[in-house]
Structures are given as structure tokens and as C-alpha cells.
Computed example of a mutant assay.
Amino acid sequence: MLELLAIENYRSIKSVTVALERLNVITGANGSGKSNLYRALRLLHDIIREGALSSLAMEGGLRAALHAGKRSRGTPVTLKLGLRTSTASYATDLGMPQSEHPRPLQNFAIDLGIPVISDFPFDPVVKSELVWSSELLRPSTTLVERRGNLVKVRDANFKLVRAEWSVREAESMLATLADPSTAPELYALRESARGWRFLDYLRTDAAAPARLPSPATFTPVLPDDGSRLPAALATVQRVGNARAFHAAIDAAFPGSRVGIEEDASGMARLVMSQPGLARPLDARELSDGTLRMILLATALLSPRMPELLVLNEPEASLHPSLLPTLAGLIRSASEQTQVIVVTHSLPLVEGLRDDANIIELEKEAGSTSIRDQLQFEGPQWVWPKR
């Protein structure tokens, strides 16, 4: 289970350390930094899972992702991301490529006191990465250490020795780990991250794939865009918790029932029966909010839950009357897996408050912080040195 998330110098987040539990709700006013915390977690996931830093390029490069506050001349450019699980801790420190002889045309970097020689001066490089085995980082608890392009791992005698594989400055050491036996802790961390799931792109527009028929095949996980919804729903109803699904639909839309109609060729389509209507409605006829509720119920009752489920503003397009049902589905999902909900919906927060770890963000002087948590309060975390 993910126990702690640490972020430094990412967008509005100067420095935040968040303790996590089984069910977590991240909330706050618009502009408080909820989306930035979510994006930081997703960026950390991409680095651990894929080992590449390409996600930063999609954000405009490291320059665009750095905290926008004032920085003293000569202070190293750094973006730090870290986490602690029940078995190990991981931290990475990203910065700019440096040299003693900056190129004269790279004025922005020179003005900041960053000597740069790269052809892509704003591409990040990995300055350091560490994996350690306890809450506190000590030489004796370090399992894998990367400084620059040099990686060290523990040998059979538990001595830190140089790894046989090499890394590039612009990629994580997880990208080039080929033999799990050389760094089993690093491999376990990467495999764990591959079990995380982010639900933030369930489409409900008129052309959404969720509105289309699909082959009625075993689909234990609803795709991220909501495609193959009929197959995923058929899986929930046939091998999952069909009773919970029907109860949720009845609570959200009293008297209604959602099911699957399958033709002779094995193609299935979603239909919804409602009181007072002479025929069931096809998925293409459903409102965005109704379809989104069905998508969320299908995903949250999946027979194959991820190790971590992250919901980003799941209340979007939903009528407030549906939020108690959504809260019940989220609570039920948290009995099967760890859940993080990012939301600004007060009714949803209140619906989860009794069972959740509520993390309320606020922004003061341009920096995001956790409300009522002083600078030296919260979970203990020490960043590795470069």
C-alpha cells in the first residue's frame, strides 16, 4: 500500500508530504493545487512504471513544471518526487544538464545561473535516485543507489557494488533494469506501480466508445476511455458483484435497470430500462451523467481491482443526487483496494468523511500546503542528497 507521497518544487507545490491510508480524499478550493498533486502522482507513476521522463515533455518540459516561486541565483534547479510503500521508499531528483562552459545562446539558463550544454537545455536529467528499506534513509538501509549515471546495488554480501547495467542521464534506472535478480526491490517497485490505475478519461460525449456495442468477451477491467463497456458490464454481472451493481443503479435511478443485450454474432449492447418507458434505452440515448454513473459503477465493481485506484473529479457531469450512491461505491471499492479521490465536491467529501483520510489543500503566497499542517508537522521524510 502507498503510505506516503512527497513532492518538492512541482508547479504550485513548493514542498508537501502527504500521509496516505486505505481511502483518501484530496480536496480544496479551485486553484488550491489538487490537480498539481494529482499530476505529480501520475508523473511519479510514469517514471516508476516506464522509467522514462517523457511525461514532462507533455507538460512543456522541466521549466514549465517547476515551482514558479522565486529562486536564489545559483540555487540548483531541482524537482523531487518520492513515495513510501509498506515495503520500501523511493525518491528521484530531477534537474537540468550542467557544464562549466555554457553555450552563449542559452540566455534563459544562464540568467538563472544554470550552466547548460545540452542540445535540449530544458529536458530534465536524473541527478539521483534511491530505494531504501525503512522510513528513515541511512547508509545501512539503502538498497539501490543512483548518482548521475552510476547505479549501485546490494550484492550477495549486502555490500553496495556497481551495477552491471548502465543508464542514460535522461531516463530513470527503472527503464534499463532487465534482470530482476540484480535489484529485486527495484523490480518489485516497478511491478507495483504497474498495478496503479488512474480514472480520469471516461468519455461520455456523443462519440464516446462507451456508447458503442462490443464483443461480449471476458473483460475484468474497464478500459481507461470507457470503451468495451458492454463487455466489462457483462463481466461484472456474470462473474462479479451483480447484486451490488443493480443496487447502485436502483439507488441512483429508482426503478431503473441496466443490462446487456447480446445478438447471435456475440456483439453486446448496453440497454437501460426506466419506469414509464415502453422500450429500453440504448447507450447512445443516455445522458452524459447517466452514462458516466454506469461507467463508474462498472469500474468500481470490477472483479479485478488494481493495487491503487485514483479517481480524479469523479463527480463531473453527475447530478448532486447521484453523489451518495457514488460515495457508497467508492467506500465499497476501498474494501478491495487503496483509493485516492481528488475532488472539490463538498457533498462527495461529506459522504466519504467518516471512512476517509481527508486531505484539504490550500494555497498561500502562491504555494500549495495542507490545511492545518505546519511546516515541520506531518509524516517524517528526508530527501536524499545529490
Rank of each mutant, 00 (worst) to 15 (best):
E145V: 08
V131C: 01
E129F: 11
L137N: 01
G113L: 08
T141I: 04
S133Q: 08
F122K: 02
D119P: 10
E100C: 00
P121W: 04
V151Y: 03
P139K: 10
A109L: 09
L105Q: 15
R138F: 02
P139I: 04
L137E: 04
P115V: 07
W132L: 04
Q106T: 07
L143N: 07
L137G: 03
F122T: 02
L130P: 01
R147P: 14
I114A: 03
F108M: 08
S128E: 12
H101W: 11
V131P: 01
S128Y: 03
S118H: 08
R147S: 15
K127P: 05
E100L: 08
V116Q: 12
L130M: 15
N149Y: 06
I117R: 11
E145Q: 15
G113N: 06
P102N: 05
P104I: 00
G113Y: 01
V151D: 00
S140H: 10
F120K: 10
E135G: 03
E129N: 02
L150V: 15
I110Q: 14
L150E: 14
V125D: 08
L150W: 10
Q98D: 12
V126K: 11
L112E: 13
G113T: 05
W132K: 00
L137D: 03
V151A: 05
L137S: 04
D119E: 13
A109N: 12
L150Y: 11
V151Q: 04
N107F: 12
R146A: 05
S134Y: 00
W132M: 05
E145H: 14
G148I: 01
W132Y: 05
T141E: 06
Q98R: 15
W132I: 08
K152N: 11
S99H: 01
I110A: 14
R147Y: 11
V144T: 12
Q98E: 15
S128F: 04
N107C: 10
F120H: 12
S133Y: 00
L136H: 03
P102M: 10
L112H: 08
K127W: 09
F120D: 13
H101Y: 11
P102D: 07
V116G: 08
S118A: 14
Q98H: 13
S133T: 10
L105P: 10
F122L: 07
P139Q: 06
V116W: 05
L137W: 06
Q106D: 13
L130I: 15
L112N: 10
P115Q: 00
T141Y: 01
I114W: 13
V116R: 01
F108T: 09
I114M: 11
S118T: 05
H101S: 12
E129A: 07
P102E: 05
E135H: 03
A109W: 09
L105D: 15
V126C: 07
V126T: 02
N149C: 14
V151E: 03
V116A: 14
P104N: 11
